[in-house]
């Protein structure tokens, strides 16, 4: 079983009857190349879909999974396929800054000096009480990310 077939099986993809309800209710598909039904079919056939850019156009709204009459976990499938794409180094680099932010501050969106100012003016702690202001805890977060190999994973690859 190749990894795509495994991801497909873990998400019940074999139960799909190709009714197309997922595609019909997909808000992203109306604006992008994402075709959920086709993606499910290709994954079921074990085709390597990890290189398809539209894999990253799913907003994870769960409309498809809710509407599927057969209980296919379409969103789980898409997330698993994204994980595989990342392992192959085949993913949009545009998210790397959010990932670096996570590693360096613990937050996907870090605090800007402007918002720090607003926080102080409206009576919030200027520096939020989180890991970004607690060096010892931040080190632990970095260690967790080092153990799971997250940075190595996203810094690898070629595309």
């Amino acid at each position: 079983m190749n990894p795509v077939e495994k991801a497909a099986r873990d998400s019940n993809v074999e139960k799909c009857v190709q009714c197309g309800k997922c595609t019909a209710g997909c808000p992203s598909g109306r604006q992008s190349r994402l075709r959920t039904r086709t993606l499910v079919q290709m994954a079921y056939q074990g085709q390597d879909v990890t290189g398809l850019p539209e894999l990253w156009d799913c907003t994870t709204c769960y409309n498809c999974a809710e509407r599927c009459p057969k209980g296919v976990n379409t969103v789980d499938a898409i997330i698993l396929l994204r994980n595989l794409a990342v392992q192959k180094g085949n993913f949009p680099r545009i998210h790397l800054s959010a990932i670096e932010n996570l590693y360096n501050t613990g937050n996907g969106f870090p605090l800007s000096p402007e918002v720090a100012q607003i926080r102080a003016i409206i009576g919030l702690k200027k520096e939020p009480y989180d890991v970004s202001t607690a060096p010892e805890e931040l080190e632990k977060v970095k260690k967790i990310l080092d153990i799971t190999g997250f940075l190595e994973l996203v810094r690898g690859g070629t595309t």
Binding site: T60, R82, A98, L102, F109, D130, F150
Partner: peptide, 12 residues
């Protein structure tokens, strides 16, 4: 920390 975000980070 960040929750971490279900789309980007879980997707990675």
């Amino acid at each position: 920390t960040c929750c971490p975000a279900p789309g980007v980070f879980r997707g990675y």
